[in-house]
Design a protein around this nucleic acid. Structure first.
Lengths: 205, 205
DNA sequence: CGCGGCACTAAGCGGGCGCTCACCCGCAGG
DNA sequence: CCTGCGGGTGAGCGCCCGCTTAGTGCCGCG
C-alpha cells in the first residue's frame, strides 16, 4: 500500500521519520489510535516494528507529533485567511472557506487531530488544548468585530462562534473524497451558511 | 463508581444485562471501544468478566445494542418533534431543538452512537446505517417543504441538511454538563441558527 | 427434601500487544 | 584498509487482552 503524501509533514526529517508519521496518520484515521498496532504503522512505512522506536519514544508520541503539526497547520490556514480579506463579512467567509477546505482536503489528518485527542497523555493534551483555543478566538474576534460595526446581528457571540467552529470541524468526520462534493464546494456552501448564522444580510440569496 | 441512569435503556432486562449496557456506555464514551476492556465493563456492572458472556456474545455485540437503541431513540425524538409543530419554521426549530437536546442530555450515549460506528462489524454497521439515514431524511423533508412554501430560501437543500445534521451531532463531542450552557439553552440557540441557515426571515432578531 | 436448571464465578488459555535488546550493515574519516 | 557509529533488523519478553471452561450456590417445583 502506498502512503499518501501530505504537505503538512513535508518538512519532517529524516525521511524514515516522515514515512512513519504518514503511516501513522493513515492508520489512526482508519482504525483509531487504540486499534492501531505499532507493527501496522511500521509496515506502512516499509520498516520493521523496532525501527519506530529509533525515531519516536512511544506510539503516543507519534500521535502527539501528528496532533501538534496538524493543529499548527489548521490555525495557520485560518490566520492567513482572516488577514487582509476586506470587511467582517469577507473575513468570516474567507475564514470558514479556508478552515472547511483544510478539514476536507486533509480529512485523514484532521480526523486524527479532532477525534483522537483523548488518547493523548495528560501533559501532551494540555499543550494541544492551548493551540485549539486559538482557532476559536480567531473566529470569535471576526464575529465580534462584525457585530460592533453592525454588519452582523448575533446575540450570543460565544455560542455562535462555538457552533461555527463545530460545523467546520465536523466536516472531517463525514467527508469522503468519493462523495459528491469537492472541498472547494463545501467551503463555499459553508461560508454562505456561516454568514447567515451571523445574521449578515446581503440582499437575499 | 455509580452507574448513571439513562432511560434509553430502561426497558432492558434482565437487570444484569441493563447494568452491563450502562457500564459499557460509560466506558466506551470515556475511553473509546478499543481502549475499553471487558473486565472494566463487568467491573462497572459489579460482576465478574465472565458474566458478560452470558448476556452478550461478544464485546462488539454490546456496542451494537447500544448503537441500535441509541439511534432508535434519537430518531424517535426527532420524529415526535416534527409532528404537529405548526409551519415549516416551527417544525425545523422543534426538530433541531429536540435533536440537539437529546445529544446534549445523553452525551455519553450519543458519543458512543456517533463516534464508535467504525468499531462495529460489517453486518451490524450496515443495519445501523439504515437508521442513520432516517434522521437526515426527516430534516431534509422539513427544509424541502419550507422551500416549496417560500418560507425558506435554500439553494442546496441536500448540502444544507447535511450541515444542520452535522451541527446537531457534533454537540455530543464538545458538550459537558460542567459547561456554561444547559441542553435547553443550546437547543434554543441552535434552533435559531438552523432557521437562519434555512434563510428564514422572522423580522430581524 | 432432592433435584434440575440457571445466573454467576475463579481460573486460565492462546494470542497479540507495546516495547527492548543484541546484533548487523554501509559508509565517512584517518 | 580499518574503525566507529547511526539507522536498521530478528527475535522475543512480559503483560494483558477477549473469551472459555469447569464448577458453585441458589431457587422453584414435585
Amino acid at each position: 500500500m502506498t502512503v499518501e503524501t501530505d504537505e503538512s509533514f513535508g518538512g519532517v526529517t529524516p525521511d524514515a521519520a516522515r514515512r512513519l508519521l504518514l503511516g501513522a496518520v493513515q492508520a489512526f484515521a482508519e482504525r483509531g489510535f487504540h486499534a492501531t498496532t505499532t507493527r501496522d504503522i511500521a509496515g506502512r512505512a516499509g520498516m520493521s516494528p523496532a525501527a519506530l522506536y529509533i525515531h519516536y519514544k512511544t506510539k503516543e508520541e507519534l500521535l502527539f507529533h501528528i496532533s501538534r503539526v496538524g493543529h499548527e497547520r489548521s490555525v495557520a490556514v485560518l490566520e492567513e485567511a482572516v488577514e487582509g480579506a476586506g470587511d467582517s463579512a469577507g473575513r468570516l467567509a474567507a475564514a470558514v472557506r479556508a478552515f472547511v477546505r483544510w478539514h476536507a482536503e486533509h480529512h485523514t489528518t484532521a480526523r486524527v487531530v479532532q477525534y483522537e485527542l483523548a488518547a493523548l497523555g495528560e501533559e501532551h493534551y494540555a499543550r494541544i488544548v492551548v493551540l485549539r483555543r486559538r482557532s476559536e478566538e480567531i473566529l470569535r474576534e471576526v464575529l465580534q468585530e462584525g457585530v460592533a460595526t453592525g454588519q452582523f446581528a448575533v446575540e450570543d457571540i460565544r455560542g455562535t462562534t462555538l457552533a461555527v467552529v463545530s460545523l467546520c470541524i465536523d466536516v472531517a468526520r463525514w467527508f469522503s473524497p468519493e462523495g459528491r462534493r469537492t472541498p472547494d464546494e463545501i467551503g463555499e456552501l459553508y461560508a454562505g451558511l456561516a454568514l447567515r448564522m451571523a445574521g449578515y444580510r446581503d440582499g437575499g440569496r
